[in-house]
Design a protein around this nucleic acid. Sequence first.
DNA 1: TAAAAATACTCCATAGGTATTTTAT
DNA 2: ATAAAATACCTATGGAGTATTTTTA
Lengths: 300, 300
Amino acid sequence: MLSTRQLRYFDALARHRHFGRAAQECAVTQPALSMQIKEMEDLLGVRLVERSRAGVRLTPIGEEAVARARGVLTALADMERSIRAHGRLLEGQLRLGALPTIAPYLLPRLLPEMAKRFPDLEVALRESQTETLLAELEDGALDLVILALPVEHPALETRALFDDPFYLAVPEGSGLFPGGIAHADAVCADDLLLLEDGHCLRDQALNVCQQVDRRRLRRFGASSLSTLTQLVANGLGVTFLPELHVRSEGGRVPRVRLVPFAEPRPARTIGLAWRRTLPFKADVEALARLIIACRAREEE
Amino acid sequence: MLSTRQLRYFDALARHRHFGRAAQECAVTQPALSMQIKEMEDLLGVRLVERSRAGVRLTPIGEEAVARARGVLTALADMERSIRAHGRLLEGQLRLGALPTIAPYLLPRLLPEMAKRFPDLEVALRESQTETLLAELEDGALDLVILALPVEHPALETRALFDDPFYLAVPEGSGLFPGGIAHADAVCADDLLLLEDGHCLRDQALNVCQQVDRRRLRRFGASSLSTLTQLVANGLGVTFLPELHVRSEGGRVPRVRLVPFAEPRPARTIGLAWRRTLPFKADVEALARLIIACRAREEE
DNA sequence: TAAAAATACTCCATAGGTATTTTAT
DNA sequence: ATAAAATACCTATGGAGTATTTTTA
């Protein structure tokens, strides 16, 4: 049976595509690493790497092998962490990721609460879009992410936290939706301002506005909700704002009127996602409750 | 990082609850195994086993650890098999499981076809009920199972093969359903004969007969479809027979009348299930097509 | 006290280091 | 010609064996 050492060397080799540098990363000499790779190839009876002067290429089988090797290494690393912490995820380091449309509004309240409740926990933060978060979660660079559900991924588990309803932000005095209730169908593509591509909030908003003609949307999107509200404040259009953002601004935004939607109010579901192989559910549950409590607190 | 050797020793120790016998299984001496376990405990900073005169007990953390260790070992073993076979599942050994309500009817046709199509494949068969099959699949004792879908299991993938409609088997000359079309709602609990508990076919039949009063069902069920048809033939009641079974009997059963159900015909979905970590999809697909073709052939 | 695990020590296999050769561009 | 990997050879770490002690029911 292969050793974890061989898997580690092989992973490093696949990343560096260079025996010498891979060996350096593994803190061994090049022949030591070469020998282990050779041994792996002998054990598997398969050529994993194409050696050539200009670096190294993996064979197709090698690509498959490294993907599986990384899976095994991640599972093993997760096991070690879990057991070392007596199954308590909330001690030691937690690498937490969050969407840019969530992090700035939830974390300022959450992090102090977490520090109070789990004093032995050290949180490393990362803010990225859904796709990046999920990739990093999968390959073990993150432990837990806060994002919008649903997430369909076989290696991940999720836990819904709360629904975050949308408001329609219109310029103050614009006269739109004078009844104070917005209707998704009445939003016009020419007016709609959105985040740039890749933000899931953009897709969610478009989902709500099924009938909007995508071809008539403005080409360039904003990169943050703050920018977006500035645009709205200056009369350049309307946009969707999640309640989470609105709350963090104290319930109102200068020169912008926030119009609630008609029932059923469109919303995004905020939730946690993590690798199946990482933590005990009890820990995620504890954290989930803290987050929910944390959000409820803001209602005061 | 832990070595695979340590994981193997630990797994053996957890199974034998005895250092000496675990060591024997691993073909090393007791002190060698003791040292590796100690090393593991040191690396993890956790006590994994309670040593006592009368054998060994795992601590709660140890239980968690061994479960995870087995997961890692299975993933690694699957990786080795896949790569060794160049991703071709259908060479070497395939440990195949099937439900007792499928195996006797499908396999006599399938196995010769498989032998013809995949000459380098050696098939090891196991026949069990759904629960057992899934457990053995998960812990690596089986590679692939044929059963009734749906199967909801995070570590497993599935592939539907075909729908297998039910017939109602009634005693010849009983006068039931003279129109030649059965209606699920007209089946009476007093008449209904079923397989014993644990057979998924039993549950599926009860699902079709939503209105049947479960309390009035006979206490003891048959252990095979053959027994069941004997009971029906002797006028003791009626039962559900899957088409797969009927076909294998040449389309008719002595002294039993087979009544098709009204549309939509109730059916069970037969499918394949396997660990996500094991094979390439292409191989499962190849086998799936063979099975489907194999069943279609019988229609002649 | 007796069975089982831990410890002490010794040995050897194998991983790793150094020096060198081979290979491919 | 030269950078990179393979090979050869030596060293040393650590895994495993044998003998023995310690533990505990």
